[in-house]
Computed example of a mutant assay.
Amino acid sequence: MTTPQSFPLELDQQLCFALYSTSLAMTKAYKPLLEKLDLTYPQYLAMLVLWESDDLTVKEIATRLSLDSATMTPLLKRLEAQGYVERIRGVEDERQVHIRLTDAGRTLKQSAREIPSAIFCAAGSDANSILQLRDSLVRLRASLNEYIAD
């Protein structure tokens, strides 16, 4: 049995590289699908969050995506310029900026419906395997976040 101390220091044997290179490949697979919608991958993720729950603060979206608010601001400004969202200052606290879908942003959801199935097909695996992999990655993320927090 391999113990952590005996893991080889070879690139292809590293979990981090397998995750990193797979993430890059996944983003490349999304690129042509998202170009049809005039979205970048980070913009698509933000839209997914808003399609789940509209009228969120920048901070809430950033938290959901594990990003900082400063990263979100230019991304959301571009989505606003494209007409998909509107940014509204909070009434009670003007420091808070709420993001709301426009009619165009809600309509875009219909155009995006084909993307998950296209990616699913591109993964070249059966549904059970893909769902198990996703669940394993969610558990790994939770474990790593718990480790980081300690």
Results as ranks from 00 to 15, higher is better:
1 M>Y: 12
2 T>V: 09
5 Q>G: 05
6 S>F: 08
6 S>W: 01
6 S>E: 06
8 P>T: 01
11 L>Q: 13
11 L>I: 06
11 L>D: 10
16 C>V: 08
16 C>D: 08
20 Y>E: 14
20 Y>G: 15
22 T>A: 15
23 S>Q: 01
23 S>K: 02
25 A>N: 08
28 K>Q: 15
33 L>W: 02
33 L>F: 06
37 L>A: 03
37 L>V: 07
42 P>M: 00
44 Y>L: 09
46 A>Q: 12
52 E>C: 06
53 S>W: 02
53 S>E: 15
53 S>M: 11
53 S>H: 15
54 D>T: 06
54 D>C: 08
55 D>R: 13
58 V>C: 13
59 K>H: 05
59 K>A: 13
61 I>Q: 05
66 S>V: 07
68 D>V: 04
69 S>C: 10
72 M>C: 02
74 P>V: 08
74 P>F: 08
76 L>D: 08
77 K>P: 05
77 K>V: 00
79 L>R: 09
80 E>G: 07
82 Q>N: 06
86 E>N: 08
86 E>M: 11
87 R>N: 03
87 R>F: 04
88 I>W: 00
91 V>S: 13
91 V>A: 14
95 R>E: 11
95 R>H: 15
97 V>W: 00
98 H>I: 13
98 H>Y: 15
104 A>D: 09
104 A>L: 14
107 T>M: 12
110 Q>V: 09
110 Q>D: 04
111 S>N: 03
116 P>L: 04
119 I>K: 07
120 F>E: 11
121 C>A: 13
126 D>L: 02
130 I>G: 02
134 R>G: 14
138 V>A: 08
140 L>E: 00
142 A>H: 14
149 A>N: 13
